[in-house]
Every structure is written in C-alpha cells, then in structure tokens.
Nucleic acid binder design. Structure first.
Length: 503
RNA sequence: GGUCCUGUGGCCGAGUGGCUAGGCAAAGCUCUGCAAAAGCUUCUACAGCGGUUCGAAUCCGCUCGGGACCUCCA
C-alpha cells in the first residue's frame, strides 16, 4: 500500500508520489529565533521529523530544509512597526545577532532533547538577503510589485486577477476569496502606503532606529514577512518540490503569500503537497503569545511553570504527540501528560524485555496459531497505519496490544513457544524499527560501564539471600531504600529479580 | 461579519455506515512473606432533536456548545 497524505491544497488524502523518485524535497517553516520555543512549536517539528524518518524508511532520499527566521518579521502592534529582533535587543541590551544565537542554541538544545533529526539544510533569512532581493526584483520586473517610499509591496489584486484565469487565485490554499476579504481586514500600520489592504510587504524601508538593515536597490531596509521561504525553498529544492509543511496557522497568510511570490517568479505552484499540523491547546484554547498561555519547552522539561505539576521528560512529550493524529487539535493537561508518561514506561519496559530475548526462544513446537496470527497482524498493520496519513495513534494502539502479549509471555501466562520463532523475531525487528527509528523514541541509559548494574546486582543478591533466610527486615530495607532513591526492584515469578530506574 | 474545523465513556484520545481502538484512572481477582510490577475481569461512550438506511458515532438537516483563521503566531 502506498503512502497517502492529506494535502491541504486539495483538501483530501492523496497518494504520495515524488516528482523525481527516489528524491524527495521537503520544506518546513522553522521558528523565529527571537524567543524561546514552546510546546506548540514541538508539534510541527516532531510531526515532520516523523515524516522525514518514515520517508527515509520507505527508501526515499529526502532533502529536508527547515529555515531559521532570524530577521525580517515585524510586530505591528500599536503605531510603530519595529523589527521584532531589534526591538527585543534594545530591551535586553544585546546585539541582535547575539540574541539570535542565544535562541537558536536553545532551540537546537530542545530539538536534540526531543530527538528530532537535524534537517539536511537549515538556512537562515539573514544569510539569504541577496537571494531575496533578486526575487523581489524579478517580481517587480514582472509587474506584480510596486515601490512606495523605499518599501516594496506585492500587488495581490493584480495577481489574483491574472492567476485566477490560470486556475490559481490568491487564496487557493486557505479557501479564501479575495473579494470577501476586503472589508474585513483590520487597520494596520502603513496601510496608506499600500494600494490595497491585501497587499503585503516584500521589502521594508528601515527607519533610523532599526539595527538590522541591508542595502537594496530601494534603499536601506529589510526583507518582508514571507519572501525568505520562497527564496530559500527555490534555492535548495527547486522551483517545484514535493512537500511543504508547517502549522495550520501559517496557512493564511504566510503560505498563501509564498505561493503568490513563488508562482510569479517560477511560473509554477511551488509545492505539490501542503501539509499542516493542528494546534496544541490548553483548556481548549490555542497556545500562543496572544493568549498568554505558552509553556516553553525548557519549562516543560524542568517543571517550572505555574500550570505544571511536575517536570516532563522530552520523550514523554514526544510520545504524547504520537498518541494523537497530527491534524487534530491536542489538548494539554497534566493528567494527559502523566498518562503518557506511564504509558511510555510500560511500552518501553515490555519492548526492552522483548529485545532481551534474543536467541532464548525454542523452536516453537507448541505454537498457538491464533495468537501467532494475531501478533503478525498487529505488527504488519504498523506500515498500513503510517501509510494512511501518518496515523501514529493507531500504531501506538497496536503496540499496546503487543505489550499485553509480551508481558503475558514474560509472566509465563502464555507459554514461551506459543509464538513462533519467526514471528517473535519479526516482532522484535519491527518494534525496534517503529519505536526507535521511525517514532524516534529513546530512553537514556546512564553510561557507567555497567558499574551501577554491578552494584545493584550485589544488592539484589543480598536481598535474595535475606529472603531465603526469611529475614524480611533486611529484604524490605533494601527494597524500600532503593525505591526512595528511584530504583524499583521487581520480584519475578521464578524467583528472579529485576530493577528499573526512574528517570 | 466572512471562511472553516469540532463536540466520543471519570480524563486523554483513534475511528473507513454493520465487526465493543488504545492509553490513564477506578474496582475485583491471580501472583507475592508483604508489596510493587505484570496478567485477567469489570466500567460498552459517541452534544440534542429530526431524517436517509435493513442498519449511523460515522451520511443529511436543524438546534445548542467549543475552537481556529481573517493581525505576529507552530
């Protein structure tokens, strides 16, 4: 079964076929590094990380481009239009680039903890000023942009008129009709400069107080909101590429503007599949700056936030995201995160036990046909569910059904050879593939050269000895005090003992 | 106001018209020196009202509730 993905452009699931197999070009809108990443940011990066990993698993050679916006997005609150980065730089008495570096580092730190693979290319807006200027010049030459007071604006009206005839009106992605927009747009800064309210800036003239500024044919200034993505995706992925991803809130106007700019320059719709992840909500409300309800990733990992009852491990966050489908909203709560934490622990312990059974299994004379087939079915459905628009939630559900089987074997409720050796080995292989390689889950093991294990083994031996003597005072002391240190001992059915260390 | 999305058991969340997703929580049982862990069992829900259908959580209509975008935003 081929991979199908939901394309926002056509509003339906479509079979994914790359333009130039086995190569796949994927562009994902990255963060604006003028502040710290929050839980909401984790969603697209984890979602598209999983897509990246899955496409790679399917054998595609993926070039994954995810930009860093380190200049050029403006806040237009109140009366002054200021470059977001330079504004904050003044407040914190930092060089703009120092600030950008700081937040870039923090972002990379969080991404690494969440175990997202680095993209193939991570271009910055400031590193592509030349490309952006060239693109603007071309749009002007084609008559779709005009200059006013050293700023350049895109002529949306003209674009819409001309490209509607070619079946690509402005608003094609978000389903908006330009005529309906006109009266609803709010009063914004510099409206008087624009010929039409829907026009958007390609290049902005920099007032004297702006620190970040570049020379351009129109004077000193900085690039507009959307041009960087058009310039960088064209440069690294070509005029037409396979996948463009990002959060749903970018659909309009950001992606719509990107389409318009790129189409004028390259005479083609830039991306073939547009994929958008949904929002993370808190108490049913979107997490966002405007609502003042953001939980930064560093706060989430440390537990330091009024809304948090505890710290959450990055893998708990990742797993939490996997338990729902990326196109649905996902509601944050301590309860939900705690449920994910426990669930992941259970999954991981069963998985590790299953892996430890390499070569331990007998030839399997007493194979339970029905059970064996059930396991095979559950394992084989992993691919099927992923192919259906990355339904990680269903894969996870199957994994838990397998956890029950694994635990039953472990506890000897099911005979060790009830599952055939071939099925068991496939189970091990597929669990590793999906849990670690595709879902990117990873549980840290303190690397101490087995010394800790040795120490614990010693304590376990002492406790076993004590129990044999029915010296329960000693055995309970060992168990209870280790528990306080976060090491949980488990007595097993056959008299064995194992331990787990709380993270 | 415009354009959309959405309403699932105590909580979180899948769900292609017929085959009780899954997780967490709760209760009982098994195992255990006692626990923990694990296993088994129980809790069979789809906002309301109509309609289509042999059959609807799933399709259609209305009502009510929630949300997103239209402005920086993942």
């Amino acid at each position: 079964m081929p991979l199908k993905v939901y394309n926002s452009l056509t509003r339906q699931k479509e079979t994914f076929t790359p333009l130039l197999a086995p190569y796949v070009g994927m562009y994902v809108c990255g963060p604006t590094v003028s502040g710290e990443s929050h839980l909401g940011h984790a969603r697209p990066y984890v979602t598209f990380d999983i897509l990246f990993r899955y496409l790679t698993h399917l054998g595609y050679k993926v070039r994954y481009v995810r930009n860093l916006t380190d200049a050029g997005h403006f806040e237009e609150e109140g009366k002054e239009a200021e470059d977001k980065i330079s504004k904050k730089a003044v407040l914190e008495k930092l060089e703009p680039m120092e600030l950008v570096q700081k937040y870039t580092n923090l972002y990379h730190w969080a991404m690494a903890l969440l175990n997202t693979l680095p993209p193939s290319i991570e271009p910055t807006a400031t590193g592509h000023i030349v490309e952006q200027i060239e693109m603007i010049k071309q749009i002007m030459a084609d008559g779709y942009a005009y200059e006013v007071n050293q700023s350049v604006y895109f002529d949306v009206e003209k674009y819409n008129t001309d490209f509607s005839k070619k079946g690509q009106p402005y608003g094609i992605l978000s389903g908006r009709i330009l005529e309906d927009q006109i009266d609803t747009t709010r009063e914004l800064d510099n409206q008087d400069e624009k010929r039409d309210k829907n026009d958007f800036a390609l290049w902005k003239h920099a007032p004297p107080e702006h620190i970040m500024r570049w020379q351009s044919p129109w004077g000193e200034g900085f690039p507009g909101w959307h041009i960087e993505c058009s310039a960088m995706s064209t440069k690294y992925l070509g005029e037409k590429f396979d996948i463009h991803g990002g959060g749903m809130d970018l659909q309009f106007p950001h992606h719509e503007c990107e389409i318009a700019q790129s189409t004028v320059c390259n005479h083609t719709m830039p991306a073939r599949y547009w994929m958008h992840n949904n929002m993370i909500t808190i108490n049913g409300r979107k997490m966002g700056k405007s609502y003042n309800n953001v939980i930064r990733l560093s706060e989430l990992f440390s537990g330091k936030h009024p809304l948090l009852l505890q710290a959450y491990h990055p893998m708990t966050i990742r797993f939490f995201l996997l338990q729902s489908h990326y196109r649905g909203t996902l509601d944050f709560s301590n309860e939900a995160l705690q449920a994910s934490e426990k669930a992941l622990k259970r999954l991981w312990e069963a998985y590790e036990w299953a892996l430890s059974q390499f070569g331990v299994r007998s030839a399997g004379l007493g194979v339970d046909r029905e059970l064996d087939e059930k396991v095979l079915k559950l394992v084989n459905e992993f691919d099927e569910f992923m192919d259906d628009d990355l339904n990680t939630a269903k894969v996870v559900a199957n994994m838990f059904e397998l956890v029950s089987v694994i635990n039953a074997v472990k506890d000897k409720h099911i005979a060790a050879d009830a599952i055939s050796a071939a099925t068991f080995s496939l189970l091990q292989k597929q669990l590793t593939l999906f849990i670690e390689d595709i879902f990117g889950l990873k549980m840290g093991h303190a690397d101490n050269n087995g010394k800790l294990d040795g120490v614990l083994q010693l304590l376990i031996d002492i406790r076993k000895e004590a129990r044999r003597r029915k010296d329960f005072v000693t055995s309970d002391k060992i168990r209870n005090e280790l528990a306080e240190l976060g090491v949980q001992l488990k007595d097993e059915k056959d008299g064995g003992m194992s331990y787990t260390i709380a993270s």
